[in-house]
Design a protein around this nucleic acid. Structure first.
Lengths: 109, 109
DNA sequence: TAGTACGTTCGATCTCTATCGAACGTACTA
DNA sequence: TAGTACGTTCGATAGAGATCGAACGTACTA
């Protein structure tokens, strides 16, 4: 776990990149989970959400979210703890993450 | 211009699809233009925004936006008039389009 | 010292998307 | 009746992203 991935500072967030990071059903599930449960480690997210994907695919999605600035990760022991950068997001794009989190998820809800 | 593209009704909007439609810098420019100027015809959007793309590429982006439900198009004479489905969007995903439209566009703004 | 759990990285594959030029159909205009 | 403006559709191409299994490195545990 080398993990020298550069998470951007809030003032360098790119709108299109953030939207692209959120524009995936699996990643929306991930983001909603950490938004609701607070900081969580990866395998817990996979288990609790019931996301059916391999660890490598999860890691890829996590990478997309971190590169956009949507989530951050810290490391403790063998676990990686993921949390939403709600404050940074709301500072840079006021109301955006709140609207996404409170939006109806499924079509014809 | 056969144009039998099915634009979804508001209650069938899909969040991931809408976010994906907005997750492109060119399409963000298009959406912001029609949001600011109201109903506009295609070639006017291309000219005023200074978007450097072919007509076919513009047509492709317009298609993505329409399929997601972000914009609608009506036809009059030889021109296609595009407008934002602000009401439908806000009804289904309250605050989302407003947050996107008011967001800082460029990084390090 | 293994052994186990955790998560990343590495190929490989497949699909989707962005892009263009060319050709087309539609409607107005001279 | 051409001619022109408008926008779509059709290949074709190139790039990005989603997905997986396998291999790896790290930290705790027995």
């Amino acid at each position: 776990m080398i993990d020298d991935l550069a998470e951007p500072p809030a003032d360098e967030f790119d709108l299109a990149r953030v939207l692209a990071a959120l524009a995936d059903p699996h990643r929306l599930v991930m983001v909603r989970y950490v938004a609701a449960h607070g900081e969580s480690w990866c395998s817990r997210v996979i288990q609790d959400t019931g996301l059916e994907m391999s660890k490598s695919t999860f890691s890829h999605h996590l990478r997309m979210l971190r590169l956009a600035g949507v989530v951050t990760k810290r490391h403790e022991g063998t676990k990686g703890y993921v949390s939403l950068r709600a404050g940074d997001l709301d500072h840079r794009f006021p109301g955006l993450i709140g609207a996404v989190l409170s939006a109806e998820f499924e079509p014809a809800a």
